[in-house]
């Protein structure tokens, strides 16, 4: 059945409040989810104070400042710090987003900045989720060009695409965080349709060079894959890149009808 409560060992309890930085004139409170796989304790939420005069404006800057100045054990992923790689996808103030492009001044209305790992995925440590399933899902759509016709020396030319299709064809990693937006689907551990995967699938279904369109559609036609999307649009609302998986999914559903009716 639907699980409304966290399992016992995932309940958040307690947490440490770290001292305010000495000599700081202005601070911002951060409440950060902590969980250490090695100490056998339940997760907790630690409170930190960031010296805003000594720190960049983004939530990621705050986390890095904490790691450098307060608590080196705080664990999170980050790489490009400019909204391309998607490594720092996390839940900030209830919204799945990228810590590197979210300004700490835009969240929490001056109160605490609440930082949690992406929901519905196993936590490795602190803010680091286990992405094994994510990559397996990505692999399951077979994200490569499939052709029977041998490629000529000249290669294959693609039909010109409109700006919408061109945007979709970009390999956008931050969409990683979209996969958490259909929570009721993600409780159960079975074939999970996720907006991002379907968006990527559309990219290959609509590729003019690909010769496996029907096979790809076959693979998606399932009550628990394509048809588990009910066009709620949470995915579009949260996407920091302005992509709309719902639109891509509607296109897939239309193609499904097109080949049957």
């Amino acid at each position: 059945m639907v699980e409304f409560a966290l399992p016992k060992n995932s309940k958040i309890s307690g947490g440490k409040t770290w001292p305010k930085p000495a000599g700081a004139t202005e601070t911002r409170e951060f409440r950060v989810y902590r969980w250490n796989p090695d100490d056998g304790k339940n997760p907790s939420v630690d409170t930190y104070y960031v010296d805003t005069h000594d720190c960049g404006p983004m939530v990621l800057d705050g986390l890095i400042w904490i790691k450098n100045h307060v608590d080196p054990t705080l664990t999170f992923r980050r790489s490009c710090r400019e909204g391309v790689c998607g490594s720092c996808a996390m839940n900030i103030d209830g919204q799945n987003t990228l810590a590197c492009t979210k300004s700490m001044h835009d969240v929490g209305a001056g109160g605490a900045v609440k930082v949690n790992p992406l929901p519905h995925q196993p936590v490795v440590k602190d803010l680091v989720p286990d992405l094994t399933n994510f990559y397996a899902q990505y692999a399951s759509i077979e994200p490569w060009l499939k052709t029977t016709t041998p490629t000529t020396a000249k290669g294959m030319e693609a039909e010109p695409r409109g700006p919408r299709e061109a945007r979709r064809s970009l390999r956008v990693h931050p969409v990683r965080l979209l996969l958490d937006l259909v929570p009721e689907l993600l409780v159960e551990q079975r074939t999970l349709p996720r907006p991002r995967r379907l968006l990527q699938a559309t990219r290959w279904v609509t590729d003019s060079r690909d010769e496996a369109t029907g096979e790809r559609l076959d693979n998606l036609e399932d009550p628990f894959r394509l048809y588990r999307c009910h066009t709620i649009m949470n995915c579009a609302k949260a996407c920091p890149k302005g992509l709309n998986p719902s639109e891509a999914i509607a296109e897939l559903k239309f193609k499904m009808v097109e080949r049957q009716i």
Binding site: N133, R190, T191, D218, N219, E221, R225, M256
Partner: peptide
């Protein structure tokens, strides 16, 4: 685990 039992090939109807 992701592929599971495979696609049901239904749903469009």
């Amino acid at each position: 685990r992701v592929r599971g039992l495979g696609s049901a090939h239904t749903g469009t109807s």
